[in-house]
Design a protein around this nucleic acid. Sequence first.
DNA 1: GCCCTCTATGTAAACGATTACATATTGCAG
DNA 2: CTGCAATATGTAATCGTTTACATAGAGGGC
Lengths: 348, 348
Amino acid sequence: MVTIKDVAREAKVSVATVSRVLNGSGPVSDDTRHRIREIAARMRYVPHSGARSLITSKTETLGVLLPDLYGEFFSEVIRGMDDTAQRNGFHLLISRAYADRHGIETAIRAMRGRVDGVVAMSPDLDADALLNLPSTIPVVLLCSVSRGNEVDSLTIQNCRGAKEMVSDLVARGHARIAIIKGSPRNYDAAERLRGYRLALREAGITLDPSLERDGDFTEAAGYSATLELLALRGRPTAIFAANDSMAIGALSALRESGVHVPEGMAVAGFDDIPLARYMDPPLSSVHVPICQLGARAVEMLLHGITNKNDHARRRERVSTKLVIRRSTGGQPEERPPPKTLNGEMASV
Amino acid sequence: MVTIKDVAREAKVSVATVSRVLNGSGPVSDDTRHRIREIAARMRYVPHSGARSLITSKTETLGVLLPDLYGEFFSEVIRGMDDTAQRNGFHLLISRAYADRHGIETAIRAMRGRVDGVVAMSPDLDADALLNLPSTIPVVLLCSVSRGNEVDSLTIQNCRGAKEMVSDLVARGHARIAIIKGSPRNYDAAERLRGYRLALREAGITLDPSLERDGDFTEAAGYSATLELLALRGRPTAIFAANDSMAIGALSALRESGVHVPEGMAVAGFDDIPLARYMDPPLSSVHVPICQLGARAVEMLLHGITNKNDHARRRERVSTKLVIRRSTGGQPEERPPPKTLNGEMASV
DNA sequence: GCCCTCTATGTAAACGATTACATATTGCAG
DNA sequence: CTGCAATATGTAATCGTTTACATAGAGGGC
């Protein structure tokens, strides 16, 4: 592997001069500058970023700690992060970590010296307390509660989004509205449930525990919870699923049971994944700008890295938007855009 | 930030001794071992991996270069990679790169000194030639042609999978079978098209260019291509989409046009994303073990890193599996598993 | 001609670890 | 008591950079 020394030897100058040329720092004569550039290119010299970051104490890399989640959410959040990171000259070191104390600690330790900061997503309700480790590097918490922590945090406007959706169902004449809940200890799930209850209370509707079914964010959970709801004596007229995957499972169950949507049962989801509009009927959902979520998290982290002395703690939430489609009685949408939306390439 | 020197000073020993204790190398008395362990823990010392890798010339990190793709594919392939990497004590440095020469070169350069090897996915047909850079670190090419390269490569059994699906359609009595193609210069897309043509030829069916429609792997493309097919004079009786997203777009278009699936039109996809079975009707598809694809790529790379001298070049492909559901006339499947399949947490 | 200021370059000390080699201490066989 | 092996520890070189400081030569004002 060719190092800066090799280049220096070849050019008959000191390593300092080579370094100056390559970094554009300090004065160098045009003559040597060109010579060194040419030689470095010819020798295919690439600076060793590890060595560089040792002395500059900057890695230009951000750590990303994610729980074991999958699907659109994962991709989109990473896309948003990577875009913003790259625009600022940073790389992403991604690690799927267990959400428990040991897992997160280990992961953060392992990242010492490789990253300038960490975005940690640990939707597990308890994760908060765990993060009390006096992390020596800037951290941004994503989709987690952050009570006692002195860390920045970014969350989704879960409660408000859920409340708006349920209120809309109420406005459309529904009184018996069921919810399929998300994973038990999940923060987003808890907040969406809170929004659901809030909306019902505000509408003067008494909460019915039998209409709150357990779920875990998978299609399968939505499917079976829906079958249970259909078997209930006081069958609901609308189902609000805490995410789109479960809503899709619900649609599938209703279809097999011969229940028409939205006439026999209205169905709404949360997230508004791209597929939602292609469902039958197109699925109403609460739109979450996932990509922006990732982008904003990285922005906050970069800010924390640049202004390390600024200890003001930031708490932000990205706002959601109600998207009403046919599954809750909305009008048929205009046709989907005929061609690719933004020139991006899809997955195979 | 506390370094090994600080620990040494506190324990009144040399850095060498601390290093020996922490790495379990060399002989150390039980007494000092325990003392140093205790002190290191109390001071919250974490070794600086950058510094370590400078001298050991191992980063224990793998670079991952991905094109700008999204959706299930992205998540799954990363999941598979991260699992395998972590099991072997490696991290993942992920970068979305442009698939052109400059993009890939820049990305690989930027990774010098931060990674021990690279998995590069560049489905763009030309990417192959571009990769002729005599990369000094081990590389595994994912889903790309690799004609002239001296690099390992891993691909999907696209052609065979597509051929099987189309042959199955033929066996079910279809003669006019359309294809919605993938992105023009995409390798997987080209191979799937080849499989489609192969199957037809083998069945003695003449190829009809008007039945080969352009697409780009998005739902929107599937949607509009299907509308075009419906407007054709010699309307096909079956549509094979080069991926599931387009197949879903096709289903949506057919539904809006009042065409029943599979009676009026059979529809098949490729990839078998989790949602496929929840479509209406459940979508036939060619199953791709995406997660394993990522896992295997990392395995190959790790092998290449460990056995650097072994210059035998490996070419592998992961095999696909036909999954026939109702959209091509299959029997209704058994009910989806009632609860979560594997204890993994879904995305919110 | 002297001194000061520039510009161009070199020297060497960091950064935080690992590790070959040197050294000091101990135990024990002869 | 001597000498050697084994054990415990320290010293210092090394990895590939950056950068503060030193040096040297040129140009110019007086």
